[in-house]
């Protein structure tokens, strides 16, 4: 680490205590802190590990078995459901990116008449709980025959995803210097050209961030898919939730199914942890 951080300073005991004693008490404190972190980490993971291990044992406590994991593929249409999750998530992420990135740029760099008020209304939508608008939404889409369709579901996800994405993109583009636009204009490029060939490549980190946030939001959603997708063609999240609690299936089959459903978001998390942290601390919303 190049610059001194808060902990460096906090720990830099000098003078009176004497270097030797300071170091040993520091090492002792470090040891205590490390052990505390270990304990918290184990306590956090314990329920997950305990339940996953149980899914490999007969009745959860008996000898090792793969019966529940085999049953997942026989008793639940997991491949179809994973495919639905992938389809809905892919379309929603693409849709949100295609409309939010240009809009964020427009609000940050291309003021037009009414831009301020429209931007403010868009941002305000971040505060609206899904449940407050979902009922008229449902009846509106039902009127035009889009309830029970992938298109309708994706539209709802896009509508809900835009406010946060536009907000994050606008703040990112705001942080880029206006001089980039001006030099483009001097070179004779139009605004559209500047956006596409100068600004867009620079915005890739922010685009990845909102893509990851939207991916997790849609893949992990229950309510929207439950209401707007056809019953026989559900996402994996809805498929599992519908089976939970009705005692048709052994609970360990459901556990195995949920582990399966968590693999794609876990991969995304491992690949993009840094982007995710950046996005969540910029404008948090889930």
């Amino acid at each position: 680490m190049v610059t001194a951080t808060l902990p460096d300073v906090l720990e830099h005991k000098g003078g009176a205590a004497g270097p030797g004693r300071a170091r040993s008490s520091l090492a002792g404190r470090h040891l205590v802190a490390s052990i505390t972190l270990l304990v918290i980490g184990v306590a956090l993971l314990y329920p997950l590990i305990d339940v996953v291990i149980a899914s490999f044992r007969t009745q959860g406590t008996g000898p090792f078995t793969l019966q529940y994991w085999r049953a997942v593929f026989q008793q639940i249409p997991v491949w179809h459901q994973l495919g639905m999750s992938a389809l809905v998530t892919g379309c929603s992420v693409a849709g949100v990116l295609v409309v939010s990135v240009p809009a964020g740029y427009a609000y940050a760099k291309l003021s037009f008449r009414g831009a301020k008020i429209v931007f403010a209304v868009t941002i305000a939508c971040m505060m609206i709980p899904v449940e407050s608008m979902i009922i008229p939404e449902y009846s509106n889409l039902a009127k035009v025959g889009l309830v029970g369709s992938v298109l309708g579901t994706v539209l709802v996800f896009i509508g809900l995803g835009i406010p946060l994405s536009v907000f994050l993109m606008a703040s990112y583009f705001n942080s880029l210097p206006d001089a980039l636009v001006e030099s483009g204009l001097v070179d004779g490029a139009g605004h559209l050209r500047i956006f596409l060939s100068v600004m867009l490549p620079l915005a890739i980190p922010a685009i990845v961030t909102i893509g990851v946030l939207e991916f997790l939001a849609v893949w992990n959603d229950l309510l929207i898919a439950l209401l707007f997708l056809p019953i026989q063609s559900q996402t994996i999240a809805v498929g599992l939730a519908a089976l939970q609690g009705n005692h048709i299936l052994n609970t360990y089959v459901l556990v195995a199914g949920s582990v399966l459903s968590a693999i794609p978001p876990m991969i995304v998390y491992m690949l993009f942890q840094r982007h995710l942290v950046a996005g969540l601390t910029m404008g948090v919303h889930r």
Partner: peptide, 20 residues
């Protein structure tokens, strides 16, 4: 250009969030 780039998002938010 600003209006053009902002319009799709504004229409979608208007129709799918503000109106409901």
């Amino acid at each position: 250009t600003g209006l053009l780039l902002a319009l799709p998002a504004a229409v979608l938010v208007g129709g799918l969030v503000v109106f409901p």
